[in-house]
Design a protein around this nucleic acid. Structure first.
Length: 455
RNA sequence: GUGAUCGUAGCUCAGUUGGUUAGAGCGCCUGAUUGUGGUUCAGGAGGUCGUGGGUUCGAGCCCCAUCUUUCACCCCA
């Protein structure tokens, strides 16, 4: 028998890890529900047609495909097989794939269930997604996303509330040093128009998104390679180097985009979002208008977001934006606009670990362990155990008859704060010896009082 | 997908130019203490050196392949 192992980029989560993950999950869920989002789950696998073409070329490459059942090679064109290029036959041997994110399955769900959905529809979804990426730190092939999306309204209130939710989650998790970056596809398109690079948006956006990481000089180098003139670069960096607070930046760019409708629209919407935050009586601490923020899947059309925890070696922990055409990709006739964002709890976990932010008490375990010496005291203990549990006190009994030392060791290892020791003495007198495992203190209580003692 | 990188006991790591039965600390088990743990002391168990080939009289060490880890690119949570 070979030693068992896990596929690349996947992990098991032990009890301690699960306690911490659940803490993060619970914080996010609480906030989503508080803002009026309702839960949805969709299958791990989707039809390949649902998934392909939604994430751009790169995305399609990262999809996990599932082999058809049965004799899937039977009807494949022999000539194609001969060439031995698997891409040629994937569509014939695989009809399903694992979901790549939660937004696309959500859009599919909305289109399929349009008749029973009341707009605007707000749902949250917490499920794993899979990407055939090369694993690195903070990058896995199976990871959880926690999405909240609203579909069926253009209102920028949704954008503002996304920021509010992010802030609430961060507060619950005790993360204070982070930034929420916001930008707008319109602003990016405006930049492309202003520097006369329409048609080359992708190259442009990919390059400027790296600004913070690789610096102006390297971005210029990359742009030059992609055929952008020095003059274009100069105008571009004039815009990108706009400094000041969000309001100032927006004012400056507003002027620069006077001849670009989409740029102007982007600026106006961002201004509205900031105004709304004020009306919500929320501060704009941690919120940053970042003109160079370009990331986001290809389906975004309006505001885009990204959240980064500062001073950790983990990439962004959250991202999202507005998408106008996603439901139309599934054949919907009416135009439904959606906005959403997603937390990556695996990355939040890694970041919190790095920052030592986990509260110590997250390892949930029993409050009481019942220890005993023989068959008689064990049986006596079972009755006590039952009454403790009926009172809602998490408790357990040591299942084997063994030395007290071993039983107390077990309590220590599981971080159980109290033990009840039952011996011949206790049995005879109907008493329990209660031991505080932290202080070592011991005291006797009548057995009938035991539930009362712990409640 | 491209180019690198790591793998020795449960964990963290030593291991000389290739040379006998591969080591340490922590952890684990047993006892000192047959009704008292987290301290101490004594003893013990545990490794096909990631896996599969190859070179060699001889491989943890060299070569090839493969899996896993980490890193850069790409992209992303």
């Amino acid at each position: 028998m070979e030693k068992p192992s896990l596929p690349k980029g996947t992990r098991d989560f032990g009890p301690q890890t699960m306690a911490r993950r659940n803490f993060i999950l619970q914080s996010i869920r609480t906030v989503f529900q508080k803002f009026g989002f309702q839960p949805l789950e969709t299958p791990a696998m989707e039809s390949l047609e649902t998934l392909t073409g939604k994430y751009g070329e790169e995305g399609d490459q990262l999809l996990f495909k599932i082999l058809d059942n049965g004799d899937f090679l039977k009807n494949v064109d022999a000539a194609k097989l001969e060439i031995r290029n698997s891409k040629l036959v994937t569509s014939e041997i695989s009809g399903k794939g694992l979901r790549y994110d939660l937004t696309v399955p959500f859009a599919r769900y909305v289109v399929m269930n349009r008749h029973e959905i009341t707009l605007p529809f707000k749902r949250y979804q917490i499920q794993p997604v899979w990407r055939a990426d090369r694993p690195q730190k903070g990058r896995y092939r199976e990871f959880y996303q926690c999405d909240a999306d609203v579909v069926g309204t253009d209102s920028l209130i949704c954008e503002a509330e996304i920021i509010l939710m992010i802030k609430e989650v961060m507060a619950l998790l005790n993360i204070s040093d982070y930034s929420i970056k916001i930008n707008h596809r319109g602003v990016l398109n405006g930049i492309a128009e202003v520097i006369q690079a329409t048609g080359k948006e992708t190259d442009l956006f990919v390059a400027i998104d790296k600004l913070e990481k690789i610096g102006e000089e390297n971005v210029r180098k990359e742009l030059a390679e992609k055929g952008f003139s020095t003059q274009q670069q100069d105008i571009l960096f004039d815009l990108l180097n706009t400094t000041g607070l969000a309001e100032q930046k927006l004012a400056t760019l507003s002027a620069a985009f006077s001849s670009s409708p989409s740029g102007k629209k982007g600026i106006d919407e961002l201004k509205d979002v900031f105004n709304l935050l004020e009306l919500y009586k929320s501060t704009t601490d941690n919120v940053e208008f970042d003109i160079a923020l370009a990331r986001g899947l290809s389906y975004y059309t309006g505001c885009i977001f990204e959240v980064k925890i500062n001073n950790v070696s983990i990439g962004s922990i959250s991202g999202g934006g507005r998408y106008d055409n996603l439901t139309q990709a599934f054949g919907a006739k009416e135009k439904l606009s959606g906005v959403g964002f997603s937390f990556g709890i695996d990355r939040i976990f890694d970041a919190m670990e790095e920052l030592n932010l986990f509260p110590k008490e997250t390892t949930a375990s029993s409050k009481v362990l019942i220890c005993h010496f023989d068959e008689a005291t064990l049986q006596y203990g079972l009755a006590i155990l039952t009454s403790l549990r009926s009172a809602g006190i998490a408790s357990e009994i040591y299942p084997d008859i063994s030395k007290l030392k071993k039983q107390l060791d077990y309590a220590n290892k599981k971080n159980i704060p109290y033990t009840i020791v039952l011996g011949e003495e206790e049995l005879k007198t109907d008493m329990c010896t209660i031991k505080n495992m932290l202080t070592g203190e011991q005291q006797k209580q009548p057995t009938e009082q035991i539930v009362h003692y712990f409640s």
